[in-house]
Design a protein around this nucleic acid. Structure first.
Lengths: 200, 200, 200, 200
DNA sequence: CATGAATGAGGCTTCATTCAT
DNA sequence: AATGAATGAAGCCTCATTCAT
């Protein structure tokens, strides 16, 4: 696949076109002919590069991964204020979600349609959750967070809280200000973990 | 519409059949003929009662409302332990979600497909959020919860947290125990609000 | 059928409703439910009075007959100016066509759909033609019109000319002034027959 | 559309098949599957070339235009007997109408059903009328026809006369001999214009 | 006489995928 | 590699007509 330079170019054009069309019309309503028209090539060509509509969707999501893989909760460096870290992390999440809002919607849509993709989506969420759980563990080790909390479940709940707020705002279209979202979720996250804001 | 008893009976049969078929096959894969076969009537009859597949779906959701409108956060009665109330409320939510898991999945699926339904789904969520916000307000008035928290945003975040956990577990199929879900979400909810567990 | 007073009233309401709906939507696009809704009765009732959509259409046309049976070419009375008679006749035709334009269109539409009705429409036209032919015969007997003309064919041609002008104007919607139509058709009719305008 | 030779061939086959089926069954009764069966292709292929039954009908009418655009009233050449020209023109019209009788019926049928087509049909008629009006003008300039006649209205009336005779005969099925039709219409046309038959 | 729910055959249309060029 | 016409299964929906109440 895509061994020649021309092939690679065509494939890239198709992925870009697919993203445009998917974002505009949704996965279900998008037709292959719309995508190939957008990419200025024929349907036949599509099938030299992808086996199905699902496959090009996967390629679109993969190409968008980098930007969508926001920092989550970064490693807590010695001396850094944990609450500030959480805030930065949350803001990064909301910003990235907003930039990729249509794609995030698509992710949810396809997850409800395609079983394979549902599993992938679940795994992607859990990867993220595990990273956050590690952060929480570290805070527990540092004595900053109640040791009774199960890091994994806690991470799942708190990440889910933020993810749902972003979904409601950017996918479902509830008009909320990002600053408010960041403030509320950070404060609740900190409270839930029992963290105090950095003392002066 | 449905002015006679016979008409009402047929309509009810169609709604029940639709729920069965939707839950079995999903909204998209469900065909009108499956629904009418399940209801033992003709396709034509379907159209005397509903204008489209979307419309019967709405009717199904409406009929399921009662069970799905779990108590949420009940009024805080004098002397009642707020944390116990939250726990009961969360448990009720998870139980109801499990009972209607397939329907909740459908709700998300259709929201990604149909714009009208997306708006309705948003409104349904907000109704629920407003109810919880009122509960938080009461706790603030009683001096049990930090007055700095915005009740509406807080309710949105915490309700979302619980809803997302339920979705991940029952819709996406992550295998988590309900007891753990209840415990974690209750503890985080209480921490986030700054509530103490009932003192001995 | 329609033995009671109530029955007669319902039937009349249905005919009136059918005319309204047919004129508004055309024969094909009109649904029985629209007609019964307009008549404020049930579909079942429709079938107490008519056997089919075609039958109620016939009833509508019959009820409208009187007004649509314009004078044609009246008997030539001794001493009457034949050209003036033709003019009056033509004007009466165009006026009546305009009043019943939608119905005339319907007549053409149904004639292209229903074979029985096509034959009826043909017969109706011929009746009219025969009447005009008789008038021409009389003018020939009176020595006012060239005896070489076949009265029947001539009547067919000239009636057709007027009918077509009316159709083009009122049914197809070409915007022509009735006065011009009357003037042109009368002059051509007179010329064609070899009649002179009444000499002073 | 139809960029390849193969595509053009299929399209042509569909148009021919559509004409066959339309002429056999009428526009309304014709089913797409009949057309594609006649053209030996799949239904899907139909939609590669036409968006609807209406559209293929338009293509059929367009393809038939050439034969149906009979000479009308040809240019009056010096020395040509105008009445003979009119007679030739009328005969050509009736012959062409007879050859395309089913199509002419369809034209009327579809004009009563489809608004776009009604407008096109009107325009087609007017094009024809304008051509005849020019011929009449020329005869007026040559002093052969009464200058008081409005060429356009006169052409409309006389063309309509001939068209209606053809319609009644070939579409509605009144059994008249073409020779009689030609004779009558030519004589009336000549009389109406005030032309004398070529003097010996 | 009136009611209106029930019927069901069958039309139109869509679109992912294939394959000959 | 690219092309784009061809495929055809399958779904939604319409509406004149019937009939039990």
């Amino acid at each position: 696949m895509a061994v020649t330079a021309r092939g690679a170019r065509t494939r890239a054009a198709l992925v870009a076109a697919a993203r445009t069309v998917f974002e505009r019309d949704g996965f279900l309503a998008s037709r292959l002919t719309d995508i190939t028209a957008e990419a200025s090539c024929s349907v036949g060509t599509f099938y030299t590069h992808f086996a199905s509509k699902e496959e090009v969707f996967l390629a679109v999501m993969e190409a968008a991964q980098d930007d969508m893989l926001h920092p989550g909760m970064p490693h807590v460096e010695d001396g850094a204020d944990p609450v500030a870290v959480i805030e930065a992390s949350n803001r990064a999440y909301f910003d990235s979600y907003r930039r990729n809002a249509r794609l995030m919607m698509l992710q949810e849509q396809v997850a409800t349609i395609d079983d394979d993709f549902r599993r992938q989506r679940l795994e992607r969420g859990e990867t993220f959750v595990r990273r956050n759980a590690k952060g929480i563990s570290r805070l527990q080790d540092a004595g900053l967070v109640d040791a009774h909390l199960d890091p994994l479940m806690t991470a799942r709940a708190l990440s889910g809280m933020v993810a749902r707020l972003a979904y409601t705002t950017f996918a479902l279209g509830l008009d909320l200000a990002v600053d408010d979202l960041v403030e509320t979720s950070t404060r609740l996250w900190a409270n839930a973990l029992g963290l105090d804001a950095k003392p002066g």
